[in-house]
Computed example of a mutant assay.
Amino acid sequence: MEDISCLSQKIGEQSIHTFREVWNSLLSGYINNGLIEDVKALFEDMPEKNIISWTSMMIGYVQKDLPEKGLNLLAKNYSGEEGSRIEGNCLTFVMALEACSHLIDLDKGKQIHAKIIRALPDADGNVSVGTTLVDMYSKSGSLCYTLRFFDAMKEKNVVSWTSAIMSFAVHGLAFQVVELFQRMVNMVINPNEVTFTAVLTASSHCGLVDEGMQYFTQMRNRYGLTPKEEHYTCIIDLLGRNERPEEA
Rank of each mutant, 00 (worst) to 15 (best):
F150R: 01
K110I: 12
V188K: 13
S142K: 09
S163R: 01
I104K: 15
L173D: 09
L180E: 02
F175W: 14
N192F: 02
M184W: 04
R118P: 00
L133T: 06
V158S: 08
I112M: 09
R148Q: 12
H102N: 08
T195D: 05
V159N: 10
G130A: 11
G130C: 13
T195P: 05
A164T: 13
Y145A: 10
C144F: 06
L133A: 08
Q176W: 06
K154V: 07
S84T: 13
V129H: 03
Q182R: 13
V134F: 02
S140Q: 08
F168K: 03
H102T: 01
K156T: 07
A123Q: 04
E155K: 14
R148P: 00
C90I: 02
S138E: 09
L133P: 03
G83P: 08
G109C: 08
T146D: 06
N89Y: 05
N190R: 11
A99K: 10
I86L: 15
T195Y: 05
F93C: 04
S138F: 02
N192I: 04
V185G: 00
E193P: 00
I86Q: 11
I117A: 12
G130F: 01
K115E: 10
D124P: 00
I104Q: 15
D122Q: 13
V185I: 13
R183W: 06
T92K: 07
L173T: 01
